[in-house]
Design a protein around this nucleic acid. Structure first.
Length: 209
DNA sequence: ATCCCGAGGG
DNA sequence: CCCTCTGGAT
């Protein structure tokens, strides 16, 4: 039937959230949650992780995708946190995206959940797909799609877009064979045979301004 | 076979 | 813009 297992990422603080989200790239939360208890037990903070061997970290997370690169990200990130931020997680987009393995999506999640800063939208594969199908964007990159969504959606919705659209994307608007028959937006969705009501005429451009 | 709550590098 | 990194689930 349906994988209605609400497996959210498990974390205890800003650091473990940052690591958990970084590990979750192209990997399910359930898979990440399977390795993080042991990972955080052995290296609970940046100080411990900064002196860990990437090979040891790699063994610990070997069941998740991209484990080799992510293990290197873990240790390098911790070394930067120790060297530049006193072992704390920085609280700005500019600083976060400089950390290895951390892009805008990860940074937006951390800023939003830990630091209550909402000046972006975390655009992952689900958000990107849904925005594209609804023709809210025709952007070719997540960054450009984020700009379109920021200009289209009121600020009070930004913080909920990622979580809510992900559920929608996982349950209904799936990557393949979306369940349009069960979709509450099917009567307004351009990808379900409905006219594009946001950008009339040219159905192919909208990301410019 | 194809996708998963991406990021880095070319 | 493209490709690669990666294993598990479906």
């Amino acid at each position: 039937m349906y994988p209605h297992v609400e497996s959210a990422l498990e974390y205890h603080n800003a650091y473990t959230l940052l690591v958990a989200v970084m590990l979750s790239a192209q990997t399910t939360d359930a898979a990440v949650n399977k390795v993080t208890p042991e990972l955080f037990r052995r290296w609970p903070n940046p100080e411990a992780m900064a002196s860990a061997q990437p090979s040891e970290v790699g063994e610990c997370i070997r069941t998740i995708g991209f484990w080799r690169a992510k293990a290197a990200h873990c240790t390098e990130m911790a070394q930067i946190l120790m060297a530049d931020y006193g072992g704390e997680v920085p609280q700005t987009m500019e600083e976060l995206v400089k950390l290895p393995g951390v892009g805008r999506k990860t940074a937006n999640i951390v800023l939003n959940k830990m630091f209550n800063t909402v000046d972006g939208i975390a655009v992952d594969t689900h958000v990107y797909r849904i925005a594209s199908r609804l023709r809210l964007t025709s952007a070719a990159t997540p960054l450009a799609a984020e700009q379109d969504l920021l200009s289209l959606l009121p600020h009070e919705l930004w913080k909920d877009v990622n979580e809510e659209w992900i559920h929608f994307g996982r349950d209904i608007c799936t990557a393949r064979n979306p369940t349009c028959s069960a979709c509450p937006l099917s009567d307004i969705c351009p990808s379900c045979g409905q006219p594009n009501r946001w950008f009339k005429g040219s159905g192919k451009k909208s990301s410019k301004r």
